[in-house]
Design a protein around this nucleic acid. Structure first.
Lengths: 236, 236
DNA sequence: CCAAAACCCGAATTTTCTTCTTGTTTTTGC
DNA sequence: GCAAAAACAAGAAGAAAATTCGGGTTTTGG
């Protein structure tokens, strides 16, 4: 493989790619400290209820009592599990984000180009939101971005999200799929921003009708900015 | 001017461009119903206070009492002006958004290419956020996007924001600055999404350090997607 | 100047959040 | 298996916030 192969070994082999994702998954894997089975069940049920209520009413006007009613448990029991609305709001994204990374890991297992890694990552982001609309509404419309998230554990999660994309972009450079020289953060900002914008528009007005397809078409176009040496055919 | 000139007359003359912006400004111009001078003053003071509190604490944990304290008036007086936190939150974006459109109108007055119109519009969005950070934090991190905004008067404001950009993009087609054929909504989504992403990142972590310059550089790159016939030199 | 309208704000009311306490179930150690 | 200990459930009390009320003051129009 010559130079390309040698560089690919320096931190950007397929194995190391999967490792880096595994590290993120390990970090966000929620380890319930609950001892009893019913309690672990309830913990999840509260989150599911909160997700629905946040998606319906918005974080600001959601009431603890509504979450309790939705979950079918007394209000005070909520406090047995979470210290308040703030903490619930923070737990909601974590709950599903890890599954997103897991799904992406599965996609990454088949040997792929860096182009595919980038494309799949961004496209899965949109498709995952489409398949989990309550979660997506809570996350994209209420919790991220939000002043309360600017510091803390969740910020780490979002940093990880960006980091993975940047790593894939660097992989493409190292492997010679596109030229070096562009600012990685800039490239990532354009791609993530464009995808988020489409997701948010879809969540707010169900337009475009087919989110997955529209994002696929948009990505085919946005990926031009990478100046790939051998751009693959459209996937849209 | 030939064909290009003739087409430019069909709804995309410079005069009509300014008209379309004026219509948006007229629509969002807040007309205070207050009769007394001090009241109009207070109305504004409440909004300024709310903006600071929302930016600091987040919409969800901001308290009316804090806004009242910040504004230096009793709590109950707040209710004389707004029906509650929700209504204040909605008034905050409107308050400044109109000034953004006015600033942009001023920029638009000098005869420009459609390329300039698009570039300036997006760049001003970022620069305006940089110069009004409290407002920007309230808007980008708390109010937009948000479930409570999905319907209602504010949605119109954002629709206007997107519409203006799309109109500029169509103008470029009509004037022959770039080829037709791309989906306008898609182009607008990429551009707006990218800019918003950079604004939000800056608001949350003050990175990049120089928002205006970074957005300028990013725009020079993103505008490639328009396939402009004679791309102007970089402005970054 | 007078009446009406607009405005102000302390106090009462209502709603919502959070903690406390007591009783029940599950797990642990033997 | 059987205490003892830990974990859990939930009603009720307490605290904090939002919202309304009602009488008083200032401004406006004639």
């Amino acid at each position: 493989m010559g130079i390309k192969g040698a560089l690919a070994e320096k931190g950007f082999s397929d194995a190391e790619w999967l490792d880096s994702i595994d590290r993120v998954i390990a970090r966000c894997m929620p380890e319930s400290t609950r001892k009893q089975d019913r309690s672990r069940q309830r913990e999840k049920e509260i989150l599911r209820a909160a997700m629905r209520v946040f998606a319906r009413d918005g974080l600001s006007s959601a009431r603890i009592s509504d979450i309790a009613a939705e979950a079918g448990i007394p209000i005070s029991t909520i406090y047995e599990y979470y210290s308040g609305k703030e903490e619930i709001a923070h737990a909601v994204p974590v709950a599903h984000m890890c599954r997103f990374f897991q799904e992406y890991r599965a996609l990454s297992e088949k040997k792929s180009t860096a182009y595919d890694h980038v494309w799949n990552y961004l496209h899965l982001s949109a498709d995952f939101a489409r398949r989990n609309p309550d979660w997506a509404r809570s996350l994209y419309l209420e919790i991220w971005p939000s002043v309360s998230v600017a510091q803390g554990e969740i910020k780490e999660l979002f940093d990880d999200y960006v980091r993975i994309l940047i790593r894939a972009i660097r992989m493409g450079e190292v492997r010679g799929e596109w030229p070096a020289g562009h600012n990685h953060y800039e490239t990532a900002a354009i791609m993530i921003g464009a995808v988020n914008q489409m997701i948010i528009t879809w969540l707010m007005m169900r337009k475009p009708k087919d989110l997955s397809k529209s994002v696929a078409a948009m990505l085919d176009r946005a990926m031009i900015l990478l100046d790939a040496v051998n751009p693959p055919p459209s996937r849209a």
